[in-house]
């Protein structure tokens, strides 16, 4: 029988985006005035010292949080479409560990390497790690969606163990710790600007949004619509690897951002990447900034790394997502 008219769940992306922007502005404002050294709006106006701190430290740190959060959330979203699985993200399935291995390699082989060479090595190694994971996913039965994150965790752990072994033997453990466990206390002017490059990859992801959505429908559906499926996979891999490498090289990975943020957004906005991507970027930026703010406040004037704060919350949400299978179709 033809259905009667029923209420619909048409996503109200515009209103969500406006709310998210307002929340983000509040967080960013707070971020400028929270830290070990006191800074108030009146002090800012009174002397040049406050303004200097703002420009040299607080603003760069705030921007780094926003850029990292947005980029990692987008990378997570893209990876989930490529793997056709909700429960994967770059920091758990080998992308971050791959980038760390690449960085270790270039540090050992060519200690004098500049930032560009390090970036390239990290990106290529991350690409290889992610591609190997996706190749693995293709062999898993689609009827068992939880096998995918499990295989990813195992693969990420193998690469991570290899990185730990090398770092231990070569006395680079403290670097590895920072790469895989991001924090923003060291971010000052001149040490984060490379993160703006993530904007290029975010824009690329937006341009390719329809293709990623279609790829998320599966290979057959994509080929039927005239998509060059393998090419779209490769482009998505490049975006994930480059964003991961940029993050690992500058501030370090924040685990679970790429997993939790896209999953929460898709409950309301769905999987149409063109609509979801701006929201995912905003929410990711806000989530990382909030985690960093909490890290600055809990044991003030000392700090807890943003990755640690996010790890605690993110792991909890991850478990909740898996147990409830919230928003997991079919």
């Amino acid at each position: 029988m033809p259905p009667a008219s029923l209420p619909t769940a048409e996503p109200r992306a515009g209103r969500h985006a406006a709310l998210a922007l307002a929340g983000l502005a509040l967080l960013a404002g707070a971020s400028l005035f929270v830290g070990a050294a006191p800074l108030s709006a009146s002090a800012l106006l009174a002397d040049g010292e406050g303004a200097r701190m703002l420009m040299l430290s607080r603003l760069p740190r705030t921007l780094a949080c926003l850029l990292t959060g947005a980029a990692m959330a987008i990378a997570g979203l893209v990876m989930q479409m490529l793997a056709r699985n909700r429960f994967v993200e770059p920091s758990t399935v080998g992308s971050a560990q791959g980038a760390a291995l690449g960085l270790l390699a270039v540090t050992l082989v060519w200690p004098a390497a500049g930032l560009a060479a390090k970036m390239l090595a990290a990106s290529l190694a991350s690409l290889a790690g992610t591609a190997a994971f996706l190749a693995m996913v293709r062999r898993l039965p689609v009827t068992q969606p939880l096998l995918v994150p499990l295989a990813g965790l195992a693969w990420g752990a193998i690469l991570g163990a290899a990185a730990t072994f090398i770092a231990w033997e070569t006395d680079l453990m403290q670097f590895l710790e920072i790469w895989l466990n991001g924090e923003f206390s060291g971010v000052v002017q001149g040490r984060y600007e490379i993160l703006w490059l993530t904007g290029i990859f975010a824009a690329a992801a937006y341009l390719l949004a329809d293709r990623f959505t279609i790829a998320g429908l599966g290979r057959d559906a994509a080929v039927g619509l005239g998509l060059r499926y393998e090419r779209v996979l490769l482009l998505g891999l490049l975006i994930v690897a480059a964003v991961t490498a940029l993050t690992v090289v500058t501030v370090g990975m924040i685990p679970f951002v790429g997993l939790v943020v896209p999953n929460l957004v898709r409950m309301g906005a769905g999987d149409n990447i063109r609509a979801a991507l701006p929201l995912v970027a905003l929410a990711g930026a806000g989530a990382v900034l909030a985690a960093d703010l909490v890290g600055r406040l809990v044991i003030h004037p000392f700090e807890v790394p943003a990755a640690t704060v996010f790890g605690v919350i993110g792991a909890g949400v991850f478990v909740w997502l898996i147990v409830t299978r919230r928003g997991h179709g079919a």
Binding site: R84, D220, A221, G224, G270, D271, G327, G329, A330
Partner: peptide, 14 residues
């Protein structure tokens, strides 16, 4: 155009 036999929609799309 092709409609496949097993066309589950894994994605959350309207």
């Amino acid at each position: 155009a092709i409609l496949r036999q097993d066309s589950t929609v894994g994605s959350r799309l309207t």
